[in-house]
Write a protein that binds this DNA or RNA. Structure first.
Lengths: 212, 212
DNA sequence: CGCCGAGTTGACCATGTTCAAGGTGGGTGG
DNA sequence: CCACCCACCTTGAACATGGTCAACTCGGCG
């Protein structure tokens, strides 16, 4: 793994040089897998947009546990904070390209709003997913999310960018439970697993049922 | 319980008649305890602001389980949605007064933004609280939230507006577990319970420790 | 006084965690 | 091209946390 530093605000250069009321964009920066994009407590002068690849935002606890707050795919905005510093850590799930956007442009508010609403809706959905739901419900809900995304890209098979550990930390489950649950789905002829990181859904409706 | 209907959009009348660029406000409406303010699937033409009392937004499942997404106190905005309809149900935790604000005023965006950011931050915190945390960690985190709010109002004792069931559904725990955990805290001299709905924190630091 | 809903307490049990071992596959170097 | 290695994943068995079910207490209100 190549060590890389987070986007340095000092190296920021405007992308749009005309008078359009567009947000000030930094250069597209590449991050290798598992690289930190920003850390908890870093100044939140910029927010970020995924160009390609996938980013996870997460919280680390003193005992080493980790809660993944969300996965962000191409087009998603992340790192939008209420205070002056980031409350989560952002890392590259796989190799990815990111654009930094300078915060504080009031004129960008109207463009920001829809993205912000989307993030809020997702965060709420995530909370609903985590509370008082069984492993089967959590995993099937997660797979359905991925399936819908894949379908919207016209893909019939889900290719997982993230590890079982990532999934577990997102769903509040151990890797063992995630593994067992997925295996159970395969046994029940709901899924097909051509490879470890590939999932083909054979019985979509069954998953919808199991989600609860 | 008096049955009351949700704010009827048809009965909306402007509150501000001058030319100020303020959001169009509906009248302040009162809701009795446990009344529904809006339901999942209702049109989201308005969002709402709590004037007094407390509101819970929650998701109901087919099997009767309920996940509370958040509690909203005086001054809080709720019901801000990404789509055309509400994805959650809003109910009055206790008797409360609510103002409806018409959605779609572009000029209100800049006023909406900070509230939206706050809601996003809270939702993220909530997700972190729900995933892979023990009952002790969840309850202590919840009590600390309440304690800080109470302290900001200059109150030394927390007065709970919500039932144990509400707390359980917020934290993803059963009422029994909530009850046992709080009782354990009292036993450990961390809390004092003058009444069922009153909590005095005796050892704040211990709670911070337990929160993890 | 008795009822009723909210809360507490106890005993048992199920789900998911923990710990431990074994498998698999992609990449690297001989 | 094959052997090895390592990270990732899978599988199994014991265990613990919190859920379930049930009984009981408490306090407010008719």
């Amino acid at each position: 793994m190549t060590v890389q530093f987070a986007l340095a605000p000092t190296s920021w250069t405007p992308f749009h040089k005309d008078n359009e009321a567009k947000p000030a964009l930094g250069p597209v920066t590449h991050f290798d897998q598992d690289c930190e994009i920003y850390g908890e407590g870093d100044g939140a002068d910029y927010y970020y947009k995924v160009v390609s690849g996938m980013v996870r935002t997460c919280k680390f606890f003193a005992d080493g546990r980790r809660q993944i707050d969300g996965f962000h795919a191409a087009g998603d905005l992340f790192g939008i904070e209420t205070g002056g510093e980031h409350s989560l850590t952002a890392e590259a799930v796989n190799d990815c390209s990111i654009v930094a956007i300078r915060r504080g442009n009031v004129e960008s508010s109207t463009q920001l709003l829809p993205e912000l609403l989307r993030n809020l809706g997702r965060a709420q959905q995530h909370a609903v997913l985590l509370g008082r739901r069984s492993a089967v419900e959590k995993v099937s809900a997660f797979l359905l999310l991925l399936a819908d995304e894949a379908a919207s890209r016209g893909e019939a098979v889900i290719t997982l960018p993230m590890t079982r550990q990532d999934i577990g930390d997102y769903l509040g489950l151990t890797i063992e439970t995630v593994s067992r649950t997925i295996w159970q789905f395969e046994r029940d002829d709901i899924l097909e697993l051509p490879a470890a990181r590939q999932i083909k859904i054979k019985d979509y409706d069954a998953l919808v049922d199991l989600r609860g």
